[in-house]
């Protein structure tokens, strides 16, 4: 009905925009589907128990990624242990203590700047501050990642601290609690979901990070225990993928790692979606 009354010019405009919209959405979906499908197709059959549970051996000419898997786990663990107190502390300061608008603005601008700095610059900075003193090792890589992920933990914690009702704090004060006691016993427990969301995001970012680690954590494939491993150079999964694909031409191994990373990405996204849903439900009650 409406269509009949529209002028020819308007109809073309509407038609054109409609076509462009469907085309672009379709293209985006197709690209994602192709990427996931292609990587899984090329890589899945390379993931065998032997591939996951051994270290690379020149003698038998096989490639195993156990050292890289462990390095990734060590670096995630070390980063989280260091970044959580710093990020949560900063968020608590911003939402609970800060009175001075200038300091708040400065901290927030700094966090924004940190999240805009590309990872290759973090890699260089990490090399300059940490690797020059500690040698290139997983710990230097983890410290670099701490700086990089600080804004993420800070932001998610801050968001969830903001949802804690003001009445809780006032209730605690009314019962005679000091500021710190109120924060420790009433405010902090309520921000757990923000911290968990932050953790998941950080794990996802570390899994995908390579440029920041290349110069700070090095790229060795040797197998080490936790404490020993943190002080030695080591490649995480992504760095190993880069080394295998770019320098050694081992595309089978590279695709197998890529497929593994893809599966982990899907898993992490699922976790984020589920915690998001859970928090929403909890907050709405």
């Amino acid at each position: 009905m409406l269509g009949n009354q529209l002028s020819w010019k308007r109809k073309t405009y509407i038609g054109l925009m409609e076509v462009l919209m469907y085309l672009c959405t379709g293209l985006t979906a197709a690209l994602a589907l192709f990427l996931v499908g292609y990587v899984l197709l090329r890589g899945l059959h390379g993931i065998t128990w032997q591939f996951l549970s051994t270290e690379p051996s020149y003698l038998s000419g096989t490639i195993g990624i156990l050292p890289n898997l462990l390095n990734t786990i060590y670096i995630i663990f070390a980063t989280l242990v260091l970044v959580l107190p710093l990020g949560i502390g900063a968020a608590v300061y911003l939402t609970e203590y800060a009175g001075n608008r200038k300091i708040v603005g400065m901290i927030e601008y700094a966090a924004e700047t940190l999240s805009g700095i590309p990872s290759i610059i973090y890699g260089l900075a990490g090399m300059l501050f940490f690797s020059n003193h500690l040698g290139s090792c997983l710990l230097a890589g983890a410290l670099t990642l701490v700086i990089m992920n600080l804004p993420v933990v800070m932001r998610t914690t801050q968001e969830s601290l903001k949802t804690v009702p003001q009445g809780y704090r006032e209730g605690a004060f009314a019962l005679g609690a000091g500021k710190w006691r109120a924060i420790r016993t009433v405010v902090m427990p309520a921000c757990v979901d923000g911290v968990i969301t932050g953790c998941i995001l950080v794990v996802g970012r570390i899994l995908g990070e390579s440029a920041a680690l290349l110069f700070s954590a090095g790229f060795a494939h040797a197998l080490h225990g936790v404490l020993d491993g943190l002080m030695r150079p080591g490649a995480t999964l992504t760095v190993a993928l880069y080394v295998y694909a770019k320098d050694q031409g081992e595309f089978g191994a590279a695709f197998a790692i890529a497929a593994l990373l893809m599966a982990l990405t899907v898993f992490i996204n699922l976790c984020t979606a589920l915690t998001g849903k859970y928090c929403k439900r909890k907050n709405s009650i």
Partner: peptide, 24 residues
């Protein structure tokens, strides 16, 4: 569905993009 597809694209590590670009 598309929102989760877009977040998946955001989560894929850059080396995986590099690898797919290199091979395709």
């Amino acid at each position: 569905v598309m929102e989760s597809v877009v977040s998946l694209l955001a989560g894929i590590p850059s080396v995986v993009y590099g690898l797919a670009g290199m091979m395709v």
